[in-house]
């Protein structure tokens, strides 16, 4: 299964990222992973949080927020670990829209968040090829 990612629209203005994070902190929502995609005028803050539903409700009062399905996989924390997963998707014509690393206290594995143009297909491919897909209830709504 895929996990839920929170996306927040941020204008490239002083204090906006802080404001979004401050909103989450005030309600004790933990951020497990975070990435920012930015253009010259705006950015998209992408997060995996401990309570996506509550986080969305909080942030919506001030920000444009959406929830997207993403995949999180465990790869070997060694050269070529991620390359193998992406190679598999590439061979099967799946386009990866973005990727960022997931910060979690785990063992020798690195966690990577992936958004592709066909999450269902990607999920099946990765599972069938023995990649370890994170299916933590805590990250879903």
């Amino acid at each position: 299964m895929s996990i839920k990612q929170l996306s927040v629209f941020l204008e490239n203005k002083k204090g906006r990222l802080w404001k979004a994070l401050n909103t989450l902190k005030s309600e004790n929502i933990d951020i497990r992973a975070l990435s920012i995609a930015d253009t010259s005028e705006f950015g998209i803050l992408r997060m995996i949080v401990s309570d996506p539903k509550k986080a969305k409700e909080l942030l919506e009062k001030e920000f444009a927020v959406s929830i997207a399905d993403v995949l999180a996989i465990e790869v070997e924390d060694q050269p070529g670990g991620l390359e193998a997963a992406l190679g598999l998707l590439n061979e099967n014509d799946v386009n990866v829209e973005y990727v960022y690393a997931f910060v979690e206290k785990k063992t020798s594995k690195a966690l990577v968040v992936l958004r592709t143009d066909d999450n269902e297909k990607s999920l099946k491919l990765l599972k069938d090829n023995a990649f370890s897909v994170v299916e933590d209830e805590a990250y879903t709504i």
Binding site: S7, F9, I44, R46, E60, A64, V65, S66, E97, R115
Partner: peptide, 9 residues
């Protein structure tokens, strides 16, 4: 707004 915002640049 919420309806127009998509998670894609």
């Amino acid at each position: 707004d919420q309806a127009t915002f998509k998670d894609s640049i």
